[in-house]
Amino acid sequence: MAQQRVLIVNDDGIDGRGIQLLEQMVRRFTDDIWVVAPDEERSGASHSISINHPIRARRRDERHFAVRGSPTDCALLGIYELMGDGRRPDILLSGINDGPNLAEDVLYSGTCAAAKEGAVLGIPSVALSQMRSYGNPANWAASEAYLPDIIDRLLAMDWPPGAFVNVNVPNVAPEAITGIEVTRQGRRPAGGFVPVRREDERFVPYYWIKISPQAADPAAGTDLYATANNAVSVTPMHLDMTCESLVEDLSRRFA
């Protein structure tokens, strides 16, 4: 990664522990680091773009910007507007997310969305997540031990167009990590997000979305299986969401 230009984004906000740790890691390789992140947590923002209201960016110092917008907004502003002389980043790193981004989490994750936007624009991009269970702190030591080498190896490879990589570190002590596995995206049973009805003091209903991951029996080779066995999961992803198994059938039906 030596002296490459790096853009760091996240969805937990510019003051999140994970983004600060990621910047410390990357500084071992290069000083050309730019941080453009939401001014507050934007978890679950997915690949949303602010098109109906203005986006404001507050400069904290020469290379740190807090943005009132989504992670995708941050990626766009960083790439097109905020990185000094207008040179594009060589690398986009998104995270380190405080929590997992496994299986269908990728559909909702602002962390993964920023990496996807980098891929849309032809920039090698990696989403990084430190797993934890809800209500419990993350074991950041595992990320500190494993992510620098993983990032270095990923960024030395040739990146095909439209690709990004999703990395998840189990929430265990570094010595309990069983290895690093290249995986496929897993799938949990449906029902991980459920609306819960409440009433305010005027008896008007409102709703919270309850996060309730369903127990899964993950298939071998998936991100869910690897992390359940305390291995770091490295999942290659692609922007092309074509369902290849249906192409032939639909072609016959619409011939």
Rank of each mutant, 00 (worst) to 15 (best):
V169Q: 03
V169A: 03
P170A: 13
P170K: 12
N171F: 05
N171D: 13
V172E: 00
V172C: 04
V172D: 02
A173E: 12
A173C: 02
A173S: 12
A173N: 08
A173K: 10
A173Q: 12
P174N: 06
P174H: 00
E175F: 01
E175S: 15
E175H: 15
A176F: 03
A176L: 08
A176T: 05
A176M: 12
A176G: 00
I177E: 12
I177M: 14
I177Q: 09
T178F: 05
T178V: 10
T178G: 06
G179W: 09
G179F: 09
G179S: 11
I180C: 11
I180V: 15
I180T: 13
I180N: 04
I180D: 07
E181L: 07
E181Q: 14
E181C: 10
V182F: 08
V182D: 01
V182S: 06
V182I: 08
T183G: 05
T183K: 01
T183M: 02
T183A: 07
T183V: 10
R184H: 08
R184K: 07
R184S: 10
Q185G: 04
Q185C: 09
Q185W: 02
G186N: 14
G186P: 03
G186L: 14
G186H: 06
G186Q: 09
G186E: 13
R187D: 01
R187H: 09
R187T: 06
R188T: 04
R188H: 00
R188P: 04
P189Y: 02
P189Q: 05
P189G: 04
A190Q: 04
A190K: 00
G191A: 05
G191D: 03
G191K: 02
G192S: 03
G192F: 01
F193T: 02
V194Q: 11
V194K: 11
P195H: 13
P195I: 07
V196T: 11
R197K: 12
R198F: 15
R198N: 13
R198W: 13
E199W: 13
E199Y: 15
E199N: 10
D200T: 06
D200R: 04
D200W: 05
